[in-house]
Simulated scan of single mutants.
Amino acid sequence: MLSATRIWAVMAKEFIQLTRDHLAYAMILIMPILQLVLFGYAINDDPRNLPTAVYVQDHGSFSRSFLSALTNSGYFRITQSANSQAELDRALARGEVQFAVVIPQDFTRRVVRGENPTILIEADAADPSATGGALAALAGLPGQALARDLTGPLVRSTQGAPFEVIVHRRYNPEGITAFNIVPGLLGVILSMTLVMMTSLAMARERERGTLESLLATPVRPLEVMIGKLAPYVGVGVVQVTLFLVMARLLFDVPMVGGWDALVVGVMLFIVGSLALGFFLSTLAQTQMQAMQMSIFYILPSMLLSGFLFPFRGMPDWAQALGSLIPVTHFLRIVRGALLKGVGLADAWPSVMALAAFVVVVTALAIVRYRTTLD
């Protein structure tokens, strides 16, 4: 017969064991809260206040009215004023702005004459979901932006819309989602495989007792780390090569150039991911704990890096957190190189962020590994 006393004893033992396993306790409590906060506050499919650069060659009142209407739409936030088309192109390629607006030199004169001038708006359409709402809002601007300026005789001289907005979608003019998702998937795959694979391998050695044999050798912590991680660097390079070949053959992802930035970014990210896995293994006592800590890293990386959702659609605090995640900078390098041809000279902010990540995580791993051995 079942004994309530024995069942209660087993339950009490299990609760005590659960409270001793702090990592499992964190998974139970923190993970649902983390998912609720991220999905509830940080995820937004309709980004607003997107950074916009303007190149204004006509400084009349009509130009100012158009820029005011553009800002009042809620989708555009003017952050840069360029002096040439080259500056606009550079800002778009670097990802500093989402849109570039060009107001021609004769805009006011042609509006007054009723010649229906054009305003060019270039959009960084590498991520179609980031620009869809803003581009849709442009449809009503020609008929509303100058409504208060065109009075009296000007109303008769401008039949219909006083000007036209021409939209140029750059880097992904057809709005193909795969061109954005597939390059971004490279960072997620490398994180899942390299971080988790390294942490599990090291934790497995600790469980089997083979790691303790290193205590009897003169091998230094940095030498152990390099020796154990070097083979996985080759694994990462093979993964990247295979991924790029399949992305080209299966999804026809454009590969414009920027190979110097791509190579440097890939190597830094591979080394950093392996060092992070090594560091997590020094914190974990079992393979299960190593896997749980890897998930703690991978989940925010997928949600806050701009992989699944537009990065600029998140609130400022979420963007600040996302900027601390190495996957965010790696995705900017990969997408910038493949879709825009961004080279090392323009991708240096993200490259430096990855280099800092490698240095910090490697130092932490060495210090923690030395402490573990002691």
Score class of each variant (00 low, 15 high):
2 L>I: 13
4 A>R: 11
7 I>A: 13
7 I>E: 14
9 A>E: 15
10 V>E: 15
11 M>S: 15
13 K>I: 09
18 L>C: 14
22 H>S: 13
23 L>H: 11
23 L>Y: 10
31 M>V: 07
39 F>A: 10
40 G>Q: 00
43 I>F: 00
47 P>Q: 06
52 T>D: 01
54 V>H: 04
55 Y>D: 10
55 Y>F: 05
57 Q>C: 09
57 Q>W: 09
59 H>K: 13
61 S>A: 12
61 S>Q: 11
64 R>E: 14
64 R>F: 08
66 F>S: 06
67 L>T: 02
69 A>K: 11
71 T>V: 10
71 T>A: 11
79 T>M: 06
86 A>F: 07
88 L>G: 10
91 A>G: 15
92 L>I: 07
93 A>V: 15
96 E>N: 14
109 R>K: 15
115 E>P: 08
115 E>T: 11
118 T>Y: 10
118 T>N: 13
121 I>F: 02
122 E>I: 09
123 A>M: 13
125 A>W: 03
131 T>S: 12
136 A>I: 08
137 A>T: 05
138 L>F: 02
140 G>I: 09
143 G>V: 11
145 A>S: 08
145 A>H: 03
151 T>R: 12
159 Q>H: 12
159 Q>L: 14
160 G>R: 09
163 F>M: 02
164 E>N: 12
175 G>A: 04
176 I>E: 08
178 A>S: 10
179 F>D: 01
180 N>A: 01
183 P>N: 02
185 L>W: 02
186 L>Q: 03
191 S>G: 03
193 T>M: 08
195 V>W: 00
200 L>V: 09
202 M>W: 02
203 A>R: 00
206 R>Y: 02
211 L>Q: 05
217 T>G: 10
217 T>E: 02
224 V>D: 06
225 M>T: 05
226 I>C: 02
228 K>Y: 01
231 P>V: 02
240 V>G: 02
244 L>N: 00
247 A>E: 10
248 R>W: 05
248 R>L: 09
251 F>C: 03
255 M>H: 14
256 V>E: 08
256 V>F: 01
258 G>C: 06
258 G>L: 05
262 L>W: 00
268 L>Y: 09
268 L>P: 07
270 I>A: 03
274 L>E: 09
274 L>Q: 08
274 L>R: 10
275 A>S: 15
276 L>H: 00
288 M>W: 11
293 M>T: 09
293 M>C: 07
293 M>L: 13
294 S>A: 11
294 S>L: 05
297 Y>W: 14
300 P>H: 06
302 M>N: 09
305 S>F: 11
315 P>K: 05
316 D>G: 12
327 V>N: 09
328 T>A: 07
334 V>M: 03
335 R>T: 00
336 G>N: 03
340 K>F: 00
351 V>K: 07
352 M>Y: 06
360 V>T: 12
362 T>F: 11
363 A>I: 11
369 Y>E: 11
370 R>C: 13
372 T>Y: 15
373 L>Y: 02
374 D>A: 14
